[in-house]
Write a protein that binds this DNA or RNA. Structure first.
Lengths: 184, 184
DNA sequence: GCAATTTACTTGACTAGTCATGTATTCAGG
DNA sequence: CCTGAATACATGACTAGTCAAGTAAATTGC
């Protein structure tokens, strides 16, 4: 097999190759994530929800009977509160979640997944698992492990150097350790 | 150094670990891309444009004096035409692009980057390069190469097996070779 | 050479993410 | 207590992505 120009260069129909390996990686990362987002959207869409709504439901299912206040959900999705409020509005309109002002702290609104939401997640479970496996199918087990390690290193930021990486720190700062979210 | 739970598990404050390595990779990929998107947005925002507007300008600069029809831009961004039309509307309102109905094919609207757009890109160039380098700083040169290879393999889909990857094909199909776009 | 498609957009209606504000609570001091 | 500040959201105004239609120009098939 002959060595060709990188895939991203072909995709972009590049006249001018990437000015740096970092820029190539940036483009490759964004484009790949975009492709994944579309693939997963195709999985949840038939059930009448969006990928983000699916994520909220996953988070709420994980929270169990205690439910979660709005900002807690926002934190796990790494998203601003306004967006989450509206996501919850739509989920509530579909009777997939339930909300109620908290008694202990009346500023909070506590959210729970509703029975219909649990059923919906159950219906999606196998399809989502297959979607993830299908997308990652091109990678061997070892590649998959490397892939996750590299992504984790990127999210950890320039400060968190890795075992075998002789890193040349040049960098733009990142949060010490990012917050949390289901999938997005 | 002791081995800990994976970074994504910590971030999600996971009670139930990932049901499969693929799902962990999916979450890690989406979250990392999200972090990158925010980092790059922070770079372009001070110049009064969004990341998507930046991408359109990059594409149009690459096209040079001939410009590009709207759908060509959409194709390179892997986006639907309606979104691109409106992106161009906003860029034109800022005098960063110029549009004109094509004489050869009057259905097409040809787009060019305007002088102000070129100047804006010039102002952003070094910051964007540093942004990319900064984000990728946690990876060594070798890691960076592996990373791009893995991303390329994912975008190529389950059909395009790689040299040293003994892949177990299970998969969800992808386009044979994706289209193109600058960065998104 | 003219009707039927196809192509290249544009427009409308949603969902979603972000920033700036506004509002109801809670909390911290004095 | 009671005032001022912080907290937890909600709302408004944009930008953006997607699907469904609509329009105008080009192309294709008799």
């Amino acid at each position: 097999m002959s060595r060709m120009r990188s895939a991203v260069q072909d995709e972009i129909q590049q006249r001018r190759p990437f000015s740096s390996p970092s820029e190539e990686a940036v483009v490759a990362l964004v484009r790949t994530a975009d492709l994944l987002r579309r693939a997963l959207t195709d999985v949840v869409e038939p059930q009448g929800i969006t990928l983000q709504q699916y994520n909220v439901l996953r988070i709420l299912r994980g929270a169990g009977a205690e439910g979660l206040p709005t900002l807690e959900i926002a934190g796990r999705m790494i998203e601003q509160a306004p967006g989450v409020t509206r996501l919850l509005d739509r989920l509530q309109a579909k009777s997939l979640v339930r909300r109620q002002r908290s008694a202990e702290d009346r500023r909070q609104i506590r959210c729970w997944i509703a029975p219909a939401g649990l059923e919906l997640l159950a219906r999606l479970q196998s399809a989502m698992q297959e979607g993830a496996r299908g997308f990652m199918a091109p990678l061997s087990e070892a590649d998959l492990a490397s892939f996750v390690r590299l992504l984790d290193a990127l999210r950890a930021g320039p400060s968190a150097l890795h075992s075998d990486s002789h890193v040349a720190v040049t960098g733009t700062g990142r949060a010490p350790v990012p917050q949390n979210k289901e999938m997005k």
